[in-house]
Simulated scan of single mutants.
Amino acid sequence: MFKANSFLDVIKHLVVIGIIVALFIVGFFYFYLPSATNHGESISVPRIVGMQLPDAEVLLDDQNLRYYVNDSSYSSDMKPYTILTQDPAPGAKVKENRKIYISVNMKNPPMIKMPKLIDGSVKNAELILKSYDLKIGKKTYVPDLQENAILKQFVNGREVKPGELVPKGSVVDLHIGDGLGNTEFEVPDVVGMPVDEASVVLVGQGLQVGNIFYDASSTEPDGTVVKQRPFAEVGAKIRVGELVDLWLAGEEPIQRID
């Protein structure tokens, strides 16, 4: 207890009390409080994009940071649980115990509907598959009149129809028409047949009727095939989609002009 014998002593006592209060204020706000709250201290956020989640967790824990998974996606080009994005960005200054928001690559791909590629071109199929996050696989050309057209689509060796569910990132194999066909077979013999019957035979074997010529000197009934090219000789071969020219008995029809 301070004892004041005079007015001067009172002034001295007040000065001492003021100094004590000032020291307390300075000590609390400039020493204790900054130390307790890490005032002025910050941590540089490490780059964790591309890391596996367990590895990133250890790194963040070592730097007194936390993480929170707020989104997930899927990419077949990355391993499961690979970190895809982070916020704050690498290099940002944050306080200790700050939460880092991340998105990770899913372990299992989501299922999506198979797009329609049938009857479209290969180039168009590549664009569609890319937009669906699917990959184009083996391209097999098969005999067909539709050149460069998609005939069938397969995933894991199984033919899939448009609208069927397939895993995102799947590899899609394609069967594509070669325009002519690569299988050779013997030239069919249509000489002696009426032209209508000959046309059915040729088209039924994947061939096309080419030029039509007429032979007025023939003694066969009009419209009968008296000659063909290529000839149906022994060993003669032809491929799907090729043309067969025909010569018909009779006069060439007169074209009417209206």
Rank of each mutant, 00 (worst) to 15 (best):
M78A: 08
S75L: 09
H39T: 01
L60N: 09
L65I: 11
R47S: 15
P46Q: 04
R47H: 09
V26I: 15
S72Y: 01
Y30M: 02
D61H: 05
Y30P: 00
V58K: 07
A36E: 04
Y74G: 01
V58T: 04
T37G: 01
Y68S: 11
D61T: 12
Y68R: 15
Q63A: 14
L65Q: 06
Y67Q: 11
N64F: 10
M51S: 12
L65Y: 13
Q63D: 10
V49P: 03
T37D: 00
Y30C: 01
F24R: 01
P46C: 12
N38G: 14
A56R: 04
F31C: 05
H39G: 11
N38V: 08
M78Q: 04
M78Y: 14
P54T: 13
G27S: 05
V58S: 05
D71G: 09
L53S: 03
D62M: 09
P34G: 03
Y32K: 06
Q52D: 05
Q63Y: 10
G50S: 13
D77L: 14
V49L: 11
F24T: 11
L59H: 02
L65P: 02
N70D: 13
M51W: 12
V26T: 03
F24Q: 00
S76Y: 10
G40M: 07
F24S: 10
R66A: 04
F29Y: 14
F31L: 08
Y68M: 13
L53H: 07
F24P: 00
S73E: 07
P54W: 13
